[in-house]
Amino acid sequence: MPKLSVIIPCYYNEQNIPVTLQELISNEAQFPAEVTFEYVFVDDGSGDNTLQALRTAQQRYPDRIRVIQLAGNVGSYNAIVAGITYATGDCMSVITADMQDPPELMVQMYSHWKQGFKLVIGNRQDREETGFSKWFAQTFHWLMKKLALPNIPDGGFDFVFFDRQVADEVIKMHERNSNVFYLMVWLGFAYVNIPYVRRKREIGKSRWTVSKKIKLLIDSLLSFSFFPIRAISVVGLLLGLVALVYGLYIIGLKLLDAQGPPGWTTLMVVVLFVSAFQMIALGVIGEYVWRSMDAARKRPLYVVQEVYATKPASDI
């Protein structure tokens, strides 16, 4: 009897929990009777009553729900790793608590897993959202596909179904400042992708701020691509060639005309341009260095404050 663990990271999702739980429970009827279920809700340091809502749900379904309370907010990807660590299923799925991803898609994902695929990806063919959020998501995943991981599906994804082996490998890597979904693709297992349209959020307000989106973009690019460092090398080489040509030009003018042009404006433009490039280069290198230092400290990705489950601690 295969066991499916559904991992749901939660952050200020107090109003979503009852609706999310009901949809997940109702979706069980679509699966073969052989499948058993476990729902691992991870409270990522929410400041509202999310934990209380999760505890109520856990008391309602004590045989299926496990609640992981983290001591503080560590970000959804670290919360997902915590959920994977505490999940006990033969296969797992990650889905958001706001139900923008259709849980019924998990039935198709499960059938592909039964066929032997270690990883099944639900990739966003389109989004019902509009404006900046949609544009940023499309640009983000286009950059990742072009500069870092060309084998990822178009449209981006954060709805996945994967085997226990994939989960164990992700946990062993203990990757910091990275993207857990891209790590699953990076492992190299053959995968199937199922396109779908991401629904618009109906309940609550997203806490996925612009600053968090930009940090995720930087983290993902630096974790999976050497393009920023290579770009610095190429631009530095080009600037060196320009400086060499310009230097020969100045020397030629000096030999032909002792007076020569004053050249103050040109000199200042060159100095400012090169200085700006040096500051950008130092910033990019600093990002890499900081991530190396952060990994060297070996601080935990998360701290678990409490685990609410009906099983004894020896089973966790």
Rank of each mutant, 00 (worst) to 15 (best):
M1R: 15
L4M: 11
V6L: 06
V6F: 03
P9M: 01
Y11F: 09
N13R: 14
Q15M: 09
N16E: 10
N16K: 06
V19Y: 15
Q22F: 06
Q22G: 04
Q22K: 09
E23S: 07
L24R: 00
A29H: 12
A29L: 13
A29K: 15
Q30R: 11
A33F: 07
V35W: 08
Y39D: 00
Y39K: 00
F41L: 01
D43A: 02
D43W: 01
G47A: 05
D48W: 03
T56D: 12
T56A: 10
Q58K: 12
Y61F: 15
P62D: 07
R66N: 08
L70Y: 02
N73F: 11
Y86W: 12
A87W: 01
C91P: 08
M92D: 13
I95V: 08
A97W: 01
P102Y: 00
P102D: 05
P102F: 01
L105K: 09
M106F: 07
F117M: 07
K118E: 15
L119R: 00
V120D: 00
I121V: 13
N123G: 00
D126K: 07
R127N: 14
T130V: 15
W135Y: 12
A137K: 09
Q138A: 15
M144P: 02
K145Q: 11
K146R: 15
L149Q: 13
I152W: 03
I152M: 09
G155M: 00
G156A: 05
F161D: 04
D163E: 11
R164P: 03
R164N: 12
N177D: 12
S178T: 04
V185Q: 00
W186T: 06
G188Q: 07
N193L: 06
N193W: 08
I194T: 08
P195F: 00
R201F: 03
G204N: 02
W208L: 07
V210R: 12
V210N: 13
V210T: 13
S211W: 06
S211C: 09
S211N: 13
K215A: 12
K215P: 03
L217C: 00
D219E: 14
L221M: 10
F224V: 04
F226M: 13
R230M: 10
A231G: 05
A231Q: 04
A231P: 03
V235P: 08
G236H: 06
G236P: 02
G236Y: 05
L237G: 13
L239R: 04
L239Y: 08
L239K: 04
L241R: 06
V242I: 14
L244M: 11
G247K: 10
Y249P: 02
Y249H: 10
L256R: 09
D257T: 09
T265S: 11
V271R: 14
F273N: 08
F277M: 04
F277P: 01
I280D: 01
V284T: 12
L301T: 05
L301F: 06
T310Q: 14
P312A: 05
